[in-house]
Every structure is written in C-alpha cells, then in structure tokens.
Amino acid sequence: MYSPTIILEALVNGLMLGAVYALIALGLTLIYGVLHIVNFAHGALLTVSMYLVWIGCEYFGLDPYVAILFVTPAMFAIGYFLQRLVIGPASRGSDNGILLVTLGLSIVIQNLLLAGFNSDTRTIVTDYAFGVIPLGPLLLSQPRVIGLAVSVVTAGLLWLVLNRTDIGKAIRAVAKEKLGASLVGIDVAHVYAMTFAIGTACLAIAGGLLMPSFYVSPTTGAAFVLVAFTIVVLGGMGSIPGALIGGLLIGVVEAASSLFLGDSLGQIGIFLIFILVLLFKPTGLFGAR
C-alpha cells in the first residue's frame, strides 16, 4: 500500500491537472450553453493553440506562459471569425448543420496541421518543467501549480464578464431567449461569435498551461477534449460552475486511478464516472434540466 503522503500528493497533483481540464471544458460548456451545439472542432482548436505556443517558443523565444498573452487574442479572433464567417453561414441556422460543420472543421484543421507540421511530436524545453514546489510534506509539480492558479483566475474573470458586463448579460440572454434578445437590439450573430471566441480563447490559455509539461502533435487536442466532454456531462451541459467542479473532480479521479491501477489505466476512472453519471444523474451535477 502507498503511504498517505504519496496518495495525497497524487490527488493534489490530479486536482491541479483537473484545473486545466476544467478550462477546456469551460469553453466547451459555454459554447454548448449558448449556441446549443457540441463543438466538435474544440479539440482541433486546442491543438492549434498548442502549436501557436510552440511556435512562439521555437521561433520567437517566448516562454510558454508569456506566449499565452499573444496566443489568447489570436485564438479569440480565430474563434470569432470562424463562427461569423464559416460556422454560422454554413449551418444556415440549423443545429444539425452546426454540428456537421464543426466536425468538418476539426478534420480540416487536423489535416492542415499534419501537412504543415507532419506527425512529429513537438515539445518545449523549460527549466521548470520538472520543477517542484514543496508544500509541507507534499511535492507539487510547478507547471501544475501555475496551471491551477491561472485556471482559477480565468474562471473568475469569465464569471465577471458573464455577470457584470453588457456583452456577458447578452450572452446569457441569447442562451435562453433568442427572440427576446433580438427585440432589445442584441445582435444575435455577434453574440454567437463572441461566445465562440471566448470559448476558443479559453483553449489558448489551456494550451499555454499544457505545453511546458505535454507534447503536441496534430491529434493531441482530441484526447483532452474527450475528457472535457466527460466533464461537461458530469457538471451539467452548459453549466459554468459544473465545468469547474467537474474538471477538478475528474483530475482527482484520473490521478487516483493512475495511482491504483497503473498509469496507462488512469483514464478508466474517468469513463467509469461518465457511465455512472449517464445512468444515475443524466442532467449532471449542476444541470438545470
């Protein structure tokens, strides 16, 4: 049996990885909550963010955390125009249309990345990738501590934007009452694009937080987004606090199952939870319906 310190350490590190999962899920759940579609391009866009961070490091010598400052506005713009110029017009207002368009987009993006960067895995070497921060008897991975802090701050900022600004209130209004929103003069197409942009910008931050300790290849994003889907279902489709709590919880579950079942089986716990949620609480922890 493991010593309590090792177990606790694994769980805390899992919690911190969960925070980055939460960030990815946050973007996914926001887009679902407002546009009522599951964004299949989310994984591919995460991969794009990770490549942008990698490019920032490789060609401009930027630290991955500094690169976040540049990649976030870039991904925000990419998200905005993808929705405004591609997904919106191509789907012609039908939800099934949007679903197919995002699925198609993910395939196109993945193959463009494959053409541009081939299938090699790319990594960023930093001095702190294996750094640890001691906390009492626990040794915490430095990139993960930063990941937790940045994720929590981002979630807080997102909450402020959604609750305190006009565009945030407009986003929440459009989520439930599109016609009513149009009638007060809210431009629904703009709000859709802003929502997509914010969701995509979350991926840029997640990409920057992941790069110091992960690699990127054209398919990397898909693995994270599969976990993010689980979190969105666990937390309740469209629920922001659900995504945050769900992400942290999934991180802990993954860490615990890696510890007890072995590293390669770490994700079993995640999907076990996924099935249990679907069976016993299909609306998720914070689901409204």
């Binding site: 006009d166 209130k169 407009a170 929440r172 209004a173 989520a175 439930k176 009452e177 016609l179 009513g180 929103a181 009638l183 007060v184 003069g185 809210i186």
Partner: peptide, 23 residues
C-alpha cells in the same frame, strides 16, 4: 413587446431591465 413576453428567465429582473437599454 412580444407576445409571450420573451423575457430572459435565467437573468434577474434588474438584468432584464438593463438589457432593455442595450442599445
């Protein structure tokens, strides 16, 4: 002011009113 009201059910009364002045 539409038939069926079309207010924002998930927003507070104050937020509904604030959005009335969105433009």
């Amino acid at each position: 002011v539409p038939e069926g009201r079309k207010i924002f059910p998930n927003l507070t009364i104050l937020e509904n009113l604030e959005l009335g002045g969105y433009c």
